Simulated assay, not measured.
Amino acid sequence: MPVTLYSDSNYAGKNVELAAGRYKLDADFNDTISSLQVPANWSVTLYDAEDFTGEKVTLTSDTANLAGVFDNKASSIEVTHKAAASTKESELYYVGGDWIIKSGGATGFLR
């Protein structure tokens, strides 16, 4: 699920979905972003200059109203997706000349 930008607060108005990447906003969205939805493990950095410079703010969750934060200021955006951290722990053993990896119930051999 990508990040969604909205021209109005409370996830209303014109909207666009963005996958991971860097974007210079066109005339339809430059200086108009007022809310955004950010799924888990995603982040959005809004810049007030079109070349990913100037004042910036990074958001990691849904924001229904950017007033007082960065309302109608964004000219470029960087969207990042971070892979969810694994909850499985791996163990590495050396037994009889072989390396054995145990991870979440699975076992593998390294030779």
Rank of each mutant, 00 (worst) to 15 (best):
L92Y: 10
S86Y: 03
W42M: 07
T58Y: 05
A67W: 03
D28I: 06
V69E: 07
E50F: 08
L92E: 08
V95M: 04
A40F: 10
K82R: 14
S34T: 03
I77Q: 01
Q37E: 15
E78W: 04
N30K: 11
T58E: 15
E55I: 09
S34M: 02
S43L: 07
R22L: 04
S61T: 15
A74G: 03
A27Q: 02
A40L: 07
V57C: 12
E55P: 00
Y93C: 01
V95N: 05
V79P: 00
T80I: 12
S90A: 15
S90V: 06
N65F: 06
A83C: 06
L25P: 00
E55S: 15
P39C: 05
A84Q: 14
N72E: 04
A64G: 13
R22Y: 02
F70T: 06
T63E: 13
L36G: 01
L25G: 03
F52E: 07
A85W: 08
K56V: 03
Y47W: 11
T45D: 05
S35P: 09
T63C: 14
L18P: 09
T63R: 10
A27M: 01
K24N: 08
G54R: 13
K82E: 13
T80H: 07
L25C: 11
K73N: 09
V79S: 00
L18D: 04
I77M: 02
V69K: 13
V57G: 08
N41L: 11
A74W: 04
L92A: 09
A74P: 01
R22S: 12
A74L: 01
E78F: 02
T60E: 12
I33F: 00
A67N: 13
S75C: 10
I77V: 15
E78R: 10
D28N: 12
D62C: 05
L59F: 05
Y93G: 06
K24V: 15
T63H: 15
T58H: 05
L46V: 02
F29Q: 04
E50M: 09
D31M: 04
K24S: 09
S61F: 06
D48W: 08
A19L: 14
K56A: 06
S76E: 02
D71E: 13
S75L: 01
L36F: 07
L36C: 05
L66Q: 00
S90R: 06
K24E: 14
A74K: 00
E50W: 05
A83Q: 14
A85D: 08
V44H: 01
P39A: 07
S75V: 03
K24T: 14
N65T: 08
F29I: 06
L92D: 04
G54Q: 12
A84N: 09
A85G: 14
A40Y: 08
D26Q: 07
A40E: 12
V57H: 08
T87F: 02
G54E: 04
L36S: 05
L36Q: 01
G54P: 13
A27T: 06
A67M: 11
L92I: 14
Y94F: 10
A84G: 11
A67H: 11
L46F: 15
V57I: 15
S34F: 00
T80D: 09
G21T: 13
T80E: 08
F70N: 04
D51F: 03
T45I: 10
D71Y: 04
L66W: 00
K24R: 12
D71L: 03
P39Q: 03
T60F: 00
A84V: 10
A85P: 12
K82M: 02
D31F: 03
E50P: 06
S76H: 04
W42S: 01
L18K: 14
S35E: 10
D51I: 03
